[in-house]
């Protein structure tokens, strides 16, 4: 190899080395959000008093908790919404049957804001995904458009508990977020 081509190769190697010194930390810095993905913890919260619920009439409640938004730490902030449905006739509190769904639409992740009492369906305003009282997708919904929902609404673990001090009956929900767009329910993260 002559001096010229040896120098040419050295130049390229040196240039590459300089680029690497910057590129490696740059990539590590840029992909940092991937490293921080595994923090979708379960949040167990009392979201509603049992007496607020009428049988067969779903109501939406906010779930709050602490949340680290990059640099800001929110001590108590709204993390999401849940739909709570009371199924029994509603006298004996201890035996109350309650179901809870995440209000996040399993199609594209919009919030399902309302329940149409007349048609008895949840409808997502974004793409008209619709679900019945049990969270199952409805075929031939009121809107007449095809239902894009890939799966039922995401049900959440729910429990009716009595407050030791006050004796009030509470609906306690284990809130989680799930990946949207999939046919199966998978925890986010």
């Amino acid at each position: 190899m002559d001096r010229r081509s040896w120098l040419a190769w050295c130049s390229r190697a040196l240039g590459l080395a300089c680029a690497t010194v910057v590129a490696v930390p740059a990539v590590r810095y840029l992909v940092d959000p991937l490293r921080r993905s595994g923090d979708s913890d379960e949040i167990r919260r009392r979201v509603a008093r049992l007496e607020e619920l009428e049988p067969g009439e779903p109501r939406m409640f906010a779930v709050s908790g602490s949340y680290q938004d990059a640099w800001t730490f929110h001590d108590e902030t709204v993390l999401g919404q849940v739909w709570i449905v009371r199924e029994d006739a509603g006298d004996a509190s201890a035996d109350a049957r309650v179901t809870a769904f995440s209000a996040t639409c399993p199609h594209k992740g919009c919030v399902i804001p309302s329940f149409d009492q007349q048609a008895c369906e949840f409808q997502c305003p974004c793409h008209k995904a619709s679900f019945d009282l049990f969270g199952e997708p409805i075929e031939g919904a009121a809107s007449g458009e095809p239902n894009p929902a890939p799966r039922p609404m995401d049900s959440l673990t729910v429990e009716v508990v009595q407050d030791d001090a006050s004796g009030t009956w509470w609906v306690e929900v284990v809130y989680q977020e799930f990946e949207s767009g999939l046919e199966t329910k998978e925890v986010k993260g």
Partner: peptide
């Protein structure tokens, strides 16, 4: 952030 301090230092 890993690499962040270095990038800012550069």
């Amino acid at each position: 952030i890993p690499g962040g301090s270095f990038v800012r230092g550069l």
